[in-house]
Design a binder for these strands. Structure first.
Lengths: 340, 340
DNA sequence: CCTCGTCAGGCAAGCGCTTTCCACGGGACG
DNA sequence: CGTCCCGTGGAAAGCGCTTGCCTGACGAGG
């Protein structure tokens, strides 16, 4: 690998000058020299060693993101928003997939700290576990105390700023819609019990139930993984235990798709006999048959706002900023009036 | 930020000893010292500066990946395979999204080189453009000449090793299936004209046509973006220009879904009046109605093999290794016998 | 003609860490 | 009791780059 010294030697200048020319420093340099150096760079195919650069100018510029899984459409969309804003500000972003593993999350925060990132954005960490929250918080606080910025997407129990979607409201909208359609026997296909996403959405559903004079008993809620298979098996369990339900609220779209697949396999018509709702309005929601009634969250926007917060100057003891973003009902074909 | 020197001072040892203890070097160290140092690390919440470490041990370990877009399911799957193998070998991977922008691709290769990666994996760069291929090749060769490894997924015109899916075979399988079902008037909804992925798949379709005594005229091929909307608009154009086709081969699954959406909007039954095929067998393929007949590529496996190649010792003039992987037909509900 | 200001360019001190090489002390052995 | 050796720990030389500060030269002003 060619080094700066090689370039300098070849151009017959000092490394200092070469560095200044290559980085376009403001120091004035004769045109002849600049040409010589640039030519040397080209001939040697010189690429500066990023580690050396980053070490020398102790200047934090990139921002780190810890996310459940970038290839999950939900987080892909958030990430898109994050990236857009970062790029607009000329910042690089380093993305890490935690796959919701708390240990990995902690490790990655460490890794990002090691890489001297200017800010850390956490998305998709939704654990209720107090011990985890506590250690994460302390890490985040240490990080902030050294001038870093921490932003959390999706919950506000953490240290640092946050942008949180109104999951409760989303649940409420869905519940209200179903009750309005005359459904009183509603089952819920929920995500992992420990995620605030799950509990908040259920809380909204429950509020809708209350307001319509109903209840949402715990036995009508089955928990599973936030994916297609989780939805299918939860729906199977639910149907076996509670055969008289007329609507199933799945707590995200992939689960709803699993529910749809199971119902089709069992020959149950949707929305004829059972109405189904999703959550998040991912692109597939409109491509399945019947197209999913669901709730839209402005995911990309949330990412953008999180990055905007992350790029702000460090906190310095001011109270954490919390931005809440709304949810919006999307009516499609998977819901209809209750049968009887 | 606490530094190693801080830790050493606090523990009353030299930085050298602290470093050895923290990195678990093989040098023997008294237990008492080790405890003191570890305690200091804990108290100071010390995290080693990754740049300094990487600079000091000039030891390339992470591998870089340039990919079209990790959140695209196709590349997500490839990436999963890459990651798995990398993790098994304790290597970190740095992922960059090029969004198929040739300039970005070049830039990222540079960036990765700057970060001293041990290997570079290119996926989703499929441009036919000779100029681009040439500059990319020269960059890659320079990189390899400094001891790096380059692996390309999806095409073999590049320098370095390659793992390529048999797109031609996939196209052939689909074509053969359609002709076997009695379709003779076939339209193609193709991806960008400049991608080898597109041209190879078409070549397979054409071979099937020839073998069944038919032709696939250019006017029956409409090009569009490799996504849902690209599929929908290409299908619209195709249908308007060639109303008597009885089958549409879309060159990837998202496009096929767009085709399905358009046909539904126009009230055309699938596979009743028109059969539709996809390509890649992404998860959604089985969730749409009708479920897509498509071709499966072992994407994760391709990623894994690419990473395995990347982890191999440097080339040293041996001829580039090229691994080809097969394709497999998946029959579902979107195809049926031709009407007449 | 001397002094001073100015400008192009180089010197060298780090950035935070690793690692080679050396020093020191004590136990084993002759 | 002297030597040798081994087991521990430290000193210091970088890794490749940036940047504050200084120098030398040259033209301008007194």
């Amino acid at each position: 690998m060619a080094t700066l010294a090689d370039v300098a030697r070849r151009a017959g200048v000092s490394p200092a000058t070469a560095s200044r020319i290559i980085n376009g420093s403001s120091k004035p340099v004769t045109e002849a020299l600049r040409q010589r150096v640039l030519a040397a760079v080209e001939e040697l195919q010189y690429v500066p060693n990023a580690h050396a650069q980053l070490l020398a100018r102790s200047h934090r510029s990139t921002v780190g993101v810890v996310v459940h899984d970038v290839s999950d459409p939900y987080f892909a969309e958030i990430t898109r928003g994050l990236q857009r804003v970062a790029t607009e500000h000329g910042r690089l972003v380093m993305i890490c997939n935690s796959y919701r593993d708390p240990d990995k999350e902690l490790q990655y925060v460490e890794l990002l700290r090691a890489h001297q990132v200017a800010a850390i954005v956490l998305a998709g960490s939704g654990y209720h576990d107090d011990a985890f929250t506590e250690t994460m918080n302390s890490k985040l606080r240490v990080y902030e105390s050294t001038g870093g910025r921490a932003v959390v997407i999706g919950r506000h129990e953490h240290a640092g700023d946050a942008v949180v979607p109104d999951n409760e409201m989303g649940g409420y909208l869905l519940g209200a819609e179903l009750y309005a359609l005359g459904h009183t026997e509603i089952g819920v296909v929920a995500g992992p019990k420990l995620l605030t996403t799950t509990t908040d959405r259920i809380a909204g559903l429950r509020r809708a139930a209350r307001e319509h004079g109903h209840r949402l008993p715990a036995r009508r809620i089955v928990y599973g993984d936030f994916d297609r298979d989780g939805g299918a098996s939860a729906a199977a369990a639910l149907l076996d235990a509670e055969p008289d339900i007329t609507a199933i609220a799945a707590l995200n779209d992939p689960m709803a798709i699993g529910v749809l697949a199971l119902l089709r396999a069992r020959g149950i018509s949707v929305p004829g006999r059972i109405s189904v709702t999703g959550f998040d309005d991912m692109p597939v929601a409109r491509d399945v048959t019947p197209a999913l009634t669901t709730v839209r969250l402005p995911l990309a926007d949330m990412g953008a706002r999180a990055m905007t917060l992350a790029l702000q100057p460090p906190a310095d003891g001011r109270p954490p900023r919390i931005e809440e973003v709304g949810a919006e009902l999307v009516r499609r074909e998977s819901t209809g009036p209750a049968r009887d």
